[in-house]
């Protein structure tokens, strides 16, 4: 019973996570300690005991580093404790970000797949597009996210589309690269077999190249969906008072609401985890329906 736990990944991950939480507590005590003593001195609180100090340090209003239970409490209050439609609800902000992420991700994936199909079937496309697609990723494209949003706003396009555009740009790249590799992965012998069947280009694509490329597609999609979320969050930064997790981060940093920043971060992390999990689940279902062993 214990052996698989120890030799598997579950127990090590749990123990390392627990260690990280303990380190987090120690760090927040270390970072907030001096400020609490300063507060005591300023407000003329005398005769505090060490346990009182410790309690206050762990529950400061605007700590330098909030403790895990503060973040969890804020997260709980702003998700379960608020109506979903409220502007203070993280579910509301999370949904805004998630919708832009998903829209951008879907467009990015479709765009990436079509580019990959073109590249695999045309030598000229391969030669002219591939170097630029790779170069496009060395460009810190997130830097223009605010500009795209502001400029599109100026011409009357606002809301979901500008954010989704950034997400599209970030998520198409892993898909193109992965799919080009995947669509090229059938071996010569398999392509020859299709040739002897006198299969058309489309049949070869649909019955050989596409199924072979699917594992590559899902791997790329996992990277793409994470990138897409980052894109949506950064695209929300210029919309200062607006909604979305990015706007929440910016507002938190303006007003020094560290707990709010951290709970927005936790929401983003949970979203990323959930998105990747969904892609993996679809991957597993596809594999099963294609006859892979569970």
């Amino acid at each position: 019973m214990m052996r698989p736990l120890i030799e598997g990944k579950t127990l090590p991950v749990l123990i390392v996570s627990a260690a990280l939480i303990i380190i987090w507590y120690c760090a927040s005590i270390g970072m907030n300690w001096q400020r609490q003593i300063d507060t005591y001195n300023r407000t003329d609180v005398v005769g505090w005991s060490t346990s009182e100090l410790l309690y206050d340090v762990l529950n400061q209003k605007k700590p330098l580093l909030p403790t895990p239970h503060q973040v969890a409490g804020e997260f709980w209050n702003t998700t379960i404790g608020q109506a979903v439609t409220s502007k203070r609800s993280l579910v509301y902000h999370g949904w805004i970000t998630l919708s832009a992420t998903l829209l951008g991700f879907v467009f990015g994936t479709l765009f990436g797949i079509s580019l990959a199909v073109l590249i695999v079937h045309s030598a000229a496309m391969d030669r002219s597009l591939m170097p630029w697609i790779i170069a496009s990723q060395t460009v810190p494209i997130l830097a223009i996210a605010p500009m795209v949003v502001v400029v599109l706003n100026a011409v009357g396009v606002s809301g979901l589309i500008p954010k989704a555009l950034i997400s599209t740009y970030l998520s198409f790249f892993p898909v193109v690269v992965g799919m080009v590799k995947g669509l090229r992965s059938p071996e010569g012998i398999q392509l020859d077999l299709m040739h002897t069947y006198s299969a058309s280009k489309f049949q070869t694509f649909w019955k050989l190249r596409w199924p072979t490329a699917l594992p590559y597609l899902f791997t790329s999609m996992k990277i793409g969906v994470a990138a897409s979320l980052v894109g949506a969050i950064v695209a929300e930064l210029p919309a200062g008072g607006g909604s979305g997790l990015g706007a929440r981060l910016l507002a938190g940093s303006y007003y020094g609401q560290t707990v709010q920043i951290w709970s927005a971060l936790v929401t983003a992390a949970l979203l990323a985890g959930a998105l990747i999990f969904c892609v993996s689940a679809v991957e597993r279902l596809t594999n099963l329906s294609m006859g892979a062993r569970a």
Binding site: L142, A226, I233, S253, I261
Partner: peptide, 13 residues
């Protein structure tokens, strides 16, 4: 895979 960029406001603080 997390949007680590979000720690920017904390680091600025």
């Amino acid at each position: 895979a997390l949007p680590l960029i979000g720690i920017a406001p904390i680091m600025v603080m």
